[in-house]
Amino acid sequence: MAIRVAGALESKPKKGVVDPIESLGRTILRARVLEDKLGNLYRAGRIVGGVYLGKGQEALSGAGGLALRKGDIFAPLIRDMAGRLGFGEPMVDALRAYLGSRLGPMKGRDGNIHRGDLTRGILPMISHLGAMLSTVAGVLVAKRMKGEKGRVGLTCAGDGATSTGSFHEGLNLAAVERLPLVVVVADNGYAYSTSRDRQFACEDLVDRAKGYGVEGHGVDGTDPMACWRVLHHAVERAREGAGPQLVVGKLLRLCGHGEHDDGSYVEKKMKSSERGRDCLKVMEEGMKKRGQEKEWQGWREEAQREVEEAVAKVSAEPVPDPFEEDWRATQSAGMAEVMVAS
């Protein structure tokens, strides 16, 4: 490991050791507060279409985003608000996608979690699960060909997405090319309503690393410091040239699949297991033990202010106008099929 990182949350780190507590704490709080707000906006009818939240998954996701640097590539999935914020996606961009502002990077053409910004190195996901692995691999191949060194690509997937052919093909390809790709699997035990035993027959997804010939790391996804350590380590390994890294975090999503879903199929014993811990509560407890309760509260209040301001700003922005759209799907002009009767 390149950097020594503080171990447990309870004790303040020694000198010379990086203390991620503030960056991680702020990131997961911002994500949670923003997502609570999105849920409210959805229930108030202000969001058309689905709302998919990452409650309970902030530590794993946020640690991934924070482990990256500017110039790296991030391809988040549906529960990665924390990772996005950690990597530097502006909060207003998230809200623009959800509230349908014309000013967002997707201009209202695509929405919610399908947002991204290629200029920032954030790939906008397509819905088809598993598709992003090979795409990030392609970005990394291109960087290698261009002689750009020291870049890492990180993409996220759920336990269910590991069943896709694309996931397999993408990870295998990256392994063959020994690309600096980090794949973070949030194993939350369910894919929509389908429990992991209907999804795969292996005990732990991290065991698959060996079969792909890549390095694997298991982590308790509810433990923020452990997530930070493991993600940081995996990203550094990839950056050092150790090839693809498979990180598998065990946790639970503490919300429905989408806000339309109550998640009633999640078994009680899952909820009361270690997986069911809320990483924000874990962090808050740790902060208390360190005597930094006030700081935590302060970060929360700052996040609340930031969210309210961003919502107010985006709410006043213009919505997409079909008459100003150019309705062009190709950069080459004059390619669109124009209907005779349209």
Partner: peptide
């Protein structure tokens, strides 16, 4: 339909 992917925003 128009010859673009299907837009997200209801206006579009």
């Amino acid at each position: 339909a128009k010859d673009t992917p299907i837009p997200y925003h209801p206006n579009l």
